[in-house]
Design a protein around this nucleic acid. Structure first.
Lengths: 226, 226
DNA sequence: GCTTGACAGATTGTCTGATAAGCGGTCAAT
DNA sequence: ATTGACCGCTTATCAGACAATCTGTCAAGC
């Protein structure tokens, strides 16, 4: 267990092609470059990425397992769509898991995690006024990442990451992040202070409330768009 | 929505080969035919299943995404092992999710689900005395399946299925199902009656308690085996 | 004896090309 | 308007090939 900070751990960046493709596709879907419902034709992906069909197909299988794409037999993969009903379930579960994560963060009070959370919160405040929302979104993403890692449960972390990917796609469907993102700042502050104070109950409640509010906005927008 | 029970919905049996392979491998792992830590060599799997490498590999990618196998670069896939620490996290999350499932079952009180639960519970009682535990295990599996479906949340259902698969592998690691399975009958009865009564709190508590007890036994056995 | 370096075998990672099968749309015939 | 045959597109799956890389071994050197 002799791990000092002089990190010799060389994690090779040369990941497998499949892995790269997987990440590329994931972010392409998350960013809206591939829209929900859109067909993803293997041959086209081959041309666009420059890799063989093998790697494309295997990457697609993983995304399929994550629920990000749905494969229709003999028709091919499409970017997963989501119904209002499923979206509600998604947010329900997210609330449950993120509540757990918040609670655990508050219980553990890992200084490193808290520092990361606070840093991102501060950054959110700084960039909240900007026209371009991408900085704010980035800070928020980082905040969540810290929250997930902080809960100390790899399974929760993994599942929440999956759910977040799906939520991102949902945003693409219903085009609803701009207004909401500002309002949620105070909610996030509540989460942060509860964690800093080690108040498990409050942290859980704050997380759940935060997700509930997000869910409300998203579901309304989704209903409107149908 | 005119769906009567004369079900014309012909869902093709002829699933894809990849799907079949995936299920085969999953159950081979779940049944202990492939043991944790064991290497799974593609070519051997090809010979054993009689399908090409493509299908094998794609099936492996899905199992990898589920966490059931771990692929070591340029070395190949192995059946995932699990540390005591991870196992504790696994059970924590399972408690959380199954608690939710129990609560939701109690809230919804779907008669069809309740009937299934009760049926399996009765069956458990009938076969509890048998020397061969497989009937009991089957009933328990069915009971869980009904509980998961009954919660009405596809995401919860899916995640819990993943976790259950991992737990099954864990059993293979620590060889500990025989004694426990009998003791849990009364716990299961508590779950069932709480759901039948529509008592959400009690259902959640009963589920969580059930998992906690299961976790304790499993973790002790796991610790002993290390 | 222990470390180092080189070598060989095993296995995956990836590509290519080929064939069969299934889905969806078109279009003529009834 | 419905039916049925036809056709193109795309996947599903296979076989074979080659490079990259991991692992273990074994001899050489200190």
């Amino acid at each position: 267990m002799a791990e000092d900070d002089s990190d010799l751990n060389v994690t090779r960046e040369t990941t497998s092609l499949r892995q790269l493709v997987e990440n590329r596709l994931r972010s392409a879907i998350g960013s809206g470059r591939f829209k929900p419902g859109q067909r993803l034709i293997e041959r086209e992906l081959c041309e666009q990425t420059g890799v063989g069909r093998t790697s494309i197909r295997e990457a697609l299988r993983q995304l399929e397992a994550e629920g990000l794409v749905t494969t229709i037999p003999h028709r091919g993969p499409v970017v997963s769509t989501i119904t209002a009903n499923e979206a509600a379930q998604l947010y329900d579960l997210r609330g449950l898991l993120e509540g757990y994560a918040g609670r655990e963060c508050a219980r553990r009070r890992d200084p490193a995690i808290i520092a990361r959370l606070r840093k991102q919160f501060v950054r959110m405040g700084e960039v909240a006024g900007e026209q371009d929302r991408s900085n704010l979104l980035a800070a928020k993403t980082e905040f969540y990442a810290a929250l997930l890692e902080g809960c100390g449960n790899a399974f929760v972390e993994r599942f929440l990451k999956m759910l977040l990917n799906r939520v991102t796609v949902l945003r693409m469907t219903s085009m609803t992040q701009a207004n909401r993102i500002g309002n949620s700042l105070s909610e996030i502050e509540n989460i942060l202070t509860a964690i800093e104070n080690g108040d498990e109950e409050a942290a859980e409640r704050a997380c759940v409330l935060h997700i509930r509010n997000a869910a409300k906005v998203a579901l309304e927008a989704l209903a409107r768009s149908e």
